[in-house]
C-alpha cells in the first residue's frame, strides 16, 4: 500500500515536471526541430546573449515582476493593517472586492483593464502592464498576510506603546517581524504570478512592449527559437537556486534562534 502511494505521488510528479525536463533538454539540442536530437550544444545559450529582442523582453518581465511585487506588498500590507481596525462588515466588503481578481477569469480581467486604458486614452505599454500586474498581485499579498494578523498578540504592540515607542516604531519592532512570513510568501507568490502571466499582459500591453510571455506567444506559430528554451532554463534554475538558498539561510536563522532560547 505504501509503495502504491509513493508510486502515485511519483506519477503525478512526473506529469507535472516532464514538460519542464523536456524544455531543459531541448535547450541543449543542436537540432532546431523538437522531435530530433542533434547532439549536445551550448550554442543557444551563447546566441542568447546577442539576441537583443529576447533580452529586452527578459528585462521587462523581471522589472515587472520585481516592481509589481514590491508595490503590491506595500499597498497590500498597509491595507491589512488598516483592516484590523475595521468593523467586520466593512472588512467583508474589502475582502470581497479583493477576491474579485482571483475568482474572475483572466480574460475578463484583461479586457476590463484594456477597456479602462483605452477609454481614458493611456497609451498601452510597460506602465499599463505594471498597473495591471499590481492589481492582480495585491490580492495574493493580502490573502497571505491577513491570516498572520489573526495569530498576532495585540498586547505586545500596546505594551510597546506604553513603554514609549511611537506607533511606527512599535509597528516595525513588534508587528512586522510577526507578519513577515506572510509578507514573504505573499511577495514570492506575487513575483511568480507576474512572471508567469500571459493573458492579462496580452490585453494590457501595446505593440512596443514585449514580455517573455507575449514574445513566446507571438513566436508559437513560426516555431519557438531555441534561445527561448535556453533563457527559460536559466530563469528556472536561477529562481530555484535562489529560493533554496533563502530557505537554507532562514532554516539556519530559525535554528540559531531556537538554540539561543
Amino acid at each position: 500500500m505504501k509503495a502504491l502511494k509513493k508510486f502515485y505521488v511519483g506519477l503525478i510528479f512526473v506529469f507535472m515536471y516532464s514538460p519542464i525536463v523536456l524544455l531543459f533538454i531541448q535547450s541543449f539540442n543542436r537540432s532546431k526541430s523538437r522531435g530530433h536530437w542533434g547532439g549536445f550544444t551550448l550554442q543557444w545559450y551563447a546566441q542568447l546573449l546577442d539576441d537583443e529582442s529576447i533580452l529586452e523582453a527578459l528585462r521587462n518581465s523581471i522589472l515587472l515582476a520585481v516592481l509589481s511585487a514590491a508595490i503590491a506588498v506595500v499597498l497590500g500590507t498597509a491595507a491589512c493593517v488598516a483592516m484590523q481596525k475595521m468593523r467586520a462588515k466593512s472588512r467583508a466588503v474589502v475582502m470581497g472586492v479583493t477576491n474579485v481578481p482571483m475568482l474572475n477569469a483572466d480574460i475578463v480581467t484583461g479586457v476590463a483593464l484594456m477597456l479602462l486604458f483605452l477609454t481614458i486614452k493611456i497609451e498601452r505599454g510597460f506602465w499599463t502592464v505594471l498597473l495591471a500586474h499590481i492589481t492582480f498581485n495585491i490580492p495574493y499579498v493580502i490573502l497571505n498576510v491577513m491570516p498572520r494578523f489573526r495569530e498576532l498578540n495585540p498586547h505586545i504592540y500596546e505594551a510597546a506603546l506604553d513603554l514609549g515607542a511611537t506607533p511606527v516604531y512599535a509597528f516595525f519592532k513588534t508587528v512586522l517581524p510577526e507578519i513577515m512570513p506572510g509578507v514573504g510568501s505573499g511577495a514570492l507568490m506575487a513575483f511568480t504570478m507576474s512572471l508567469d502571466d500571459f493573458i492579462i499582459t496580452h490585453f494590457t500591453t501595446g505593440s512596443g512592449t514585449q514580455t517573455l510571455s507575449t514574445k513566446i506567444y507571438s513566436e508559437v506559430k513560426m516555431g519557438i527559437k531555441p534561445e527561448i528554451y535556453a533563457l527559460s532554463s536559466v530563469i528556472f534554475v536561477t529562481v530555484l537556486v535562489l529560493l533554496i538558498l533563502v530557505n537554507r539561510v532562514q532554516y539556519r536563522l530559525d535554528r540559531q534562534r531556537l538554540e539561543a532560547e
Binding site: 504570478m193 512572471l195 500571459f198 530555484l240
Partner: peptide, 22 residues
Amino acid sequence: FLIVPMWMNFLLRTYAWQSILE
C-alpha cells in the same frame, strides 16, 4: 507542485506537450 513549475513559463510548459503528443 504549485509554485516551482510556474518559474518555467506557462506557455512554454503547455507548448512542450506538443513535442510529447505530436
